[in-house]
């Protein structure tokens, strides 16, 4: 099984045409899957491709290269807008996984419980997809279509996440059946902008409670102008029609619904704080 290690995007794209080769980044999903099925005929390692790794800022916003690792996200010098994404980066698998696993890998793997997705949804991220014919952009919310399913076309590479510049602060909470190194029962990310005591805007996303992580547009709209404590109350009484949690080995659907409301209220409260992080651990 040949492993290609191209250094340019055009070379990588060329190698991926024809449908024989699969794209490899951190390998944290691809390698474990090898034990369960026939291996792909060829693999193309994208981590050496020029421009695919790292975080940069332009006049309109931020660009996170697809092959950026979660540890790089965690260590990057980013404004409080990204606090939720950083908190999520800390919860992707273990430190070893974060050291090698990439942002694009987390999205393309498209697990309903992908830890990176809610925070990026709350940041209004778009994906940049490269093909030999050119690149296209698509909102992240449209890109992931179902469990393990995306709009990534054969031979395409997710080259970057594009995040519009915005004010506000982020937060992220993950709930699992143990404290760390756990697949989520539910997770919530928030980006909140405040004006005085009131919420100017709130962006909220929930993962592991529907086939694809979801934004909560109705609740977001309802929060504008509310105080933080009013917003928390609204989160606790909201009925979350966007979500369709299921019973599985990790928890029941009813518990997920109940826990999400608490996590959303908590995330709004934390995102609105300007001080140091609220301690999450008892």
């Amino acid at each position: 099984m040949p492993l290609h290690r191209p250094e340019s995007l055009s070379a990588a794209l060329e190698l991926l045409q024809g449908g024989r080769a699969v794209a490899l980044a951190g390998g944290t999903d691809l390698y474990p899957a090898l034990r369960d099925g026939t291996p792909p005929p060829e693999m193309v390692d994208l981590t050496r491709v020029d421009g695919l790794r790292g975080i940069s800022r332009s006049e309109t916003g931020w660009r996170i290269g697809g092959a950026t690792t979660w540890t790089q996200v965690l260590k990057a010098d980013l404004p409080p807008l990204f606090n939720g994404l950083k908190a999520a980066a800390r919860e992707v698998g273990s430190v070893q996984i974060q050291n090698t696993g990439t942002v694009a890998g987390n999205l393309c793997n498209a697990s309903p419980a992908a830890d990176g997705v809610p925070a990026l949804l709350a940041l209004d991220a778009e994906v940049e997809l490269a093909a030999p014919s050119g690149t296209r952009r698509m909102p992240l919310g449209d890109f992931i279509t179902g469990p393990r399913a995306t709009h990534l076309a054969p031979g395409e590479i997710l080259t970057a996440l594009l995040i519009p510049e915005a004010d506000g602060r982020g937060a992220f909470f993950k709930l699992g059946a143990r404290r760390y190194l756990v697949i989520s029962i539910a997770m919530v990310s928030a980006v909140v902008e405040t004006e005085g005591d009131a919420i100017k805007s709130a962006r909220l996303a929930v993962g592991a409670c529907s086939p694809v992580a979801r934004r909560l547009p109705a609740l977001e709209a309802a929060l504008a102008g509310k105080t933080i404590s009013q917003a928390g109350q609204a989160a606790l009484t909201y009925d979350y029609p966007e979500l369709s949690p299921i019973d599985d080995v990790r928890a029941g659907a009813g518990y997920r619904r109940e826990a999400v409301a608490t996590l959303v209220a908590r995330a709004i409260g934390q995102a609105a704080l300007t001080d140091k992080e609220v301690p999450h651990v008892a």
């Binding site: 059946a177 143990r178 760390y180």
Partner: peptide, 28 residues
């Protein structure tokens, strides 16, 4: 935290790795 879950149809283990069989993590 610890619980093996079996598929009720076949008896096959559904939680058959250390990601899904939860021994306490250091943080626990």
């Amino acid at each position: 935290t610890e619980k093996l879950t079996h598929d009720p149809r076949t008896g096959h283990l559904a939680t058959r790795d250390l990601a899904n069989y939860h021994v306490p993590a250091h943080a626990d």
